[in-house]
Every structure is written in structure tokens, then in C-alpha cells.
Design a protein around this nucleic acid. Structure first.
Length: 243
DNA sequence: CCAGACGTTGTT
DNA sequence: GTCTGG
DNA sequence: CCAGACGTTGTT
DNA sequence: GTCTGG
């Protein structure tokens, strides 16, 4: 699965993908609903060491023909949902079955996006303790997870109210490096495949099926590093409790 | 037709 | 045990 | 994902 | 909104 991750190298991703940064108004929907950004962040595109479900996070989409970094809430809320809370059950979507699920199908065809990240966490159980491990490229640097998005607004919302845009991370079978801790992991999209994933077309599932297949090659050179247990607390952004 | 669900994960 | 919040 | 709560009534 | 179950 993927239930927690880091994104600290977004400036490198902005350079690598030549991203436009969305204006603050387009981030208003994700920020208008609790919990908003973790305390202590000076901007929505600042580095994050502990992105947790329901938080807003930076995501790349094609907007007006340009790859654009914007802020979306983690946990996909389908446009037909009665309540924002539906999103907590949609933090991940299984790549093998998403094309057939009412909550994900249309988003997979028409609203694909990439989560800006540099690695993800998995937990090892040691008796009652849950010990976090970080998985990412040994040399550091940005990576992107395949994701889908939708927008939602309460039915009785006033006409001018902002839409809440939200996303789900696609998961696939775990690579051998991750398998000892868990049988699922996020779909990692290689730099060369990003443009195809982001294409604004209404794609049949087959058109991107190869990108969603388990791809051990994409995580070649990745490492498994045990990290400090402050990560367990989703309210913490750093070990020093600074934010 | 209407009513009700719509999802993944881990754990047992 | 199960749900909610982050 | 993990951590933490898990409730109702009446009154302000 | 759209699909499934009754």
C-alpha cells in the first residue's frame, strides 16, 4: 500500500518536468477543508517529511496544456459523494481493478495525475511496536506515483464555493525490496513515462496498462532504510516536532 | 422499477 | 473491535 | 498508514 | 453519476 510518504525534492521535480506552479486560488478548495496544511509550513509547495491521508499534498496535472503542480487533498472524494469523509477509504486504488470501480473508473480514464514524492513509508511489526521504514532512491531525488483525481462539492454549497480536489494513489504488487514488509506498493512512474500518463485524453484502460503493471525495474537502486518512530505520528512533520 | 452501494488495507 | 482524524 | 477515540442529555 | 441486487 501507500499510506504515508515524503516529498522534499519538489524543486528538482519542477525543474525536471518544467512545471508551472498553480496559483493559490486553485489550491483554495484543498485548504478550505480540515486539516489543511501541517502547522509550520510557509508555503504549500514546501518540503514535507510525513504526508498523511486527508492532508493536502502537491500533485502534477495537465492544466491548459501545461504540466502544473497544484495542491489536492489525499483521499479521493468522488463527485457524487455525500460527504468528504468518503475520501479516507479511497487513499489507494488497486491498479488491477480500478478501471471497473464506480469510484475510480472515470477518473482513471480522464483525470490521471502524478504525486510529487521522493519515497514512501512502510511499517514493520516488532511485537507491539510499529517500526517505520522509508523506501526511495538510494541517491535521492524526485519520484512520481501514478494517481487519479476528482473534484467534489457539498450538494448544498453556495454557487461560488471552491471545489475540493482530491486524489488516490494507484497500488500494485510490491517489488522484491518492499515485499518483506508488505505485498503492495505505489505505482512508480518513470520519468520517461510521465508525459504519457498525464496525457489529457480520454484513454481506454489498455492505453496505460503497461505503466500500471508491477515494475521492479522502476525501483532499481532503491533502498530500505529504518527511520525514527516520530513518523508514526501523522501530526509531526519532523523529528524535532517543529511542525 | 427503486434502494443502496460505490474502497483498500491488515488481521484473524 | 471499529471508526475517525491527521 | 498510525494514533486515538469509542456518549448522551441539557444547558449556555 | 452509475452499477448491482431485489
Amino acid at each position: 500500500m501507500c499510506g504515508r510518504y515524503t516529498v522534499t525534492t519538489q524543486q528538482d521535480l519542477i525543474a525536471e518536468m518544467d512545471l508551472v506552479r498553480a496559483d493559490d486560488a486553485s489550491c483554495a478548495g484543498a485548504l478550505a477543508v480540515a486539516p489543511g496544511l501541517p502547522a509550520g509550513l510557509t508555503s504549500w509547495w514546501a518540503p514535507r517529511w510525513n504526508v498523511a491521508p486527508t492532508q493536502p499534498a502537491p500533485v502534477v496535472r495537465t492544466r491548459a496544456g501545461r504540466a502544473t503542480l497544484g495542491l489536492l487533498r489525499w483521499g479521493l472524494v468522488p463527485h457524487w459523494a455525500d460527504d468528504l469523509a468518503i475520501g479516507v477509504r479511497h487513499i489507494n486504488a488497486r491498479a488491477e481493478t480500478a478501471a471497473g470501480k464506480p469510484a475510480f473508473r472515470d477518473s482513471l480514464r480522464r483525470r490521471r495525475c502524478l504525486v510529487a514524492a521522493d519515497g514512501f513509508y512502510e511499517w514493520r511489526r516488532d511485537g507491539k511496536r510499529r517500526v517505520p521504514h522509508w523506501f526511495g532512491p538510494g541517491g535521492g531525488g524526485p519520484v512520481t506515483f501514478a494517481a487519479i483525481w476528482d473534484r467534489w462539492r457539498r450538494r448544498d454549497a453556495p454557487a461560488g464555493a471552491p471545489w475540493v480536489e482530491s486524489f488516490a494513489i494507484l497500488t500494485t504488487a510490491a517489488a522484491p525490496l518492499v515485499a518483506p514488509l508488505h505485498d503492495r506498493m505505489p505505482v512508480v512512474v518513470a520519468a520517461a513515462d510521465r508525459a504519457r500518463w498525464l496525457a489529457a485524453d480520454d484513454l481506454p484502460a489498455e492505453a496505460v496498462a503497461d505503466l500500471l503493471a508491477p515494475g521492479a525495474a522502476v525501483v532499481a537502486g532503491w533502498i530500505d532504510r529504518e527511520v525514527e518512530p516520530w513518523v508514526n505520528d501523522a501530526r509531526r512533520e519532523r523529528g524535532d516536532r517543529a511542525g
